[in-house]
């Protein structure tokens, strides 16, 4: 995402030297050992749990 003409574009929330973006979809919220949050239960396709990466 690009912000054109922003007067003061600074980094917020994350610290300066963090080079990953934890809000992205590729980062899972739950730990990988949980099996109760299967996509099937959430009305989505796929029967093998959430697919990451």
């Amino acid at each position: 995402m690009r912000f054109v003409g922003h007067p003061n574009l600074t980094r917020i929330l994350n610290v300066e030297d963090l080079d990953v973006f934890p809000m992205r979809k590729e980062y899972r919220l739950e730990d990988g050992t949980r099996t109760d949050k299967d996509d099937r239960f959430f009305g989505r396709e796929g029967h093998e749990g959430r697919q990451f990466d």
Binding site: I12, M23, L29
Partner: peptide
């Protein structure tokens, strides 16, 4: 100003909740 001291990633949390 700096923000984020009580950031709890609500938007991310919401993606995992009914």
């Amino acid at each position: 100003p700096t923000i984020g001291y009580i950031h709890r990633a609500f938007e991310k949390l919401a993606e995992h909740r009914p």
